[in-house]
Amino acid sequence: MKPVLRPAIDGLLILVLVFLFTSALLLLVDTSPVEAYGHLLRGSFGSWSKFSRVLNVWVPLTLCSMGLLYAFRAGLWNIGVEGQMVLGAIGATAVLNGGLGSDTPLLWLGLALLAGMLLGALWALLAGWLKVWGGVHEIFTGLGLNFVAVGLVLWLIFGPWKRPGIASMSGTQPFPRELWFPTLEGWRVSPFAIGLALLVVLLSLWLLQRSRFGLELKAVGQNPRAVPLYGLSPVRYMLIAITLSGALAGLAGTLQVSGVYHRLIPAISSGYGYLGLLVVMLANFRLLPIPFIALFFAALNVGSIQLPMMMQLDSSLSGVIQGACVLSALLVFGLRRLQRRSP
């Protein structure tokens, strides 16, 4: 078998496994798999309006996944992406609150982007510092900081930033249209957001695959004990990687506020941080498959929304398929490793 074909064959194998598993599950609950898949497909790619919703999910999911990839390259499990995204959203909201009634809304949107990335980066850096100076594993700090972030956003929504009159779970007062990320007629997604996500993918492609920094980052991830001999400080690279990771998550959070919800809501991260972990694992920690897998996952998320209405089926089917994908992928990758070991 040609080595080039291998990923394609693996991918096909994974999809077949997922198809079999999900179909069996649907049959078990007396539902037609064909119909369910049809709804998923029509619900995500059936019209431009639906597809633009898919893109709305694709943007933050891709950003979070790319961010995670930086951390993984340096050997770090940045579980804190969720919290970093929330902090980004908080930063953006704070700036946009300041820009209410201003004559230069674009300037404030730009500032919101910067603030979101900065806050996300700082939140991640906190986890990084705790790791390198405190010796606390980043999974624990990340998880802990996620809870703190959720607490913070709830406090803001029900406290200082509560809607005039009554605070509610539906979030803060929506921003006026000038402070929305610019979009086109009939688009539910901002072309700027798509452009930003694509830019991040391209930049990362260069930075991680082509640049010296990418090679050094990978070396740190592969063997942090040896890199000092090459004159590199593993601590510095780990901090840079997790900071970049947080900045991208913060960017995703900013876009959620300014491009999707136009206000701060309690579930502003929509779980994309954790979903991003699945995307990166399914991509086998490689860069190029990430945007495509993110698109697939986004389509599942959006497509499943109409399942309850049309088929009285819970929309968690998308989660089932996503989870099955990752488990099948881990299975296939594991088998490949075994195969390489034996004749």
Binding site: K218, A219, Q222, N223, A226, P228, G231, L232
Partner: peptide, 25 residues
């Protein structure tokens, strides 16, 4: 160690794959 290397020093550890080389590279 960076300054040590820049000023002309080199160190080769006994545990080559653990401390000296990068697996996968």
């Amino acid at each position: 160690h960076r300054a040590f290397r820049r000023s002309g020093g080199s160190f080769l550890p006994a545990d080559r794959l653990e401390e000296g080389l990068i697996p996968g590279f």
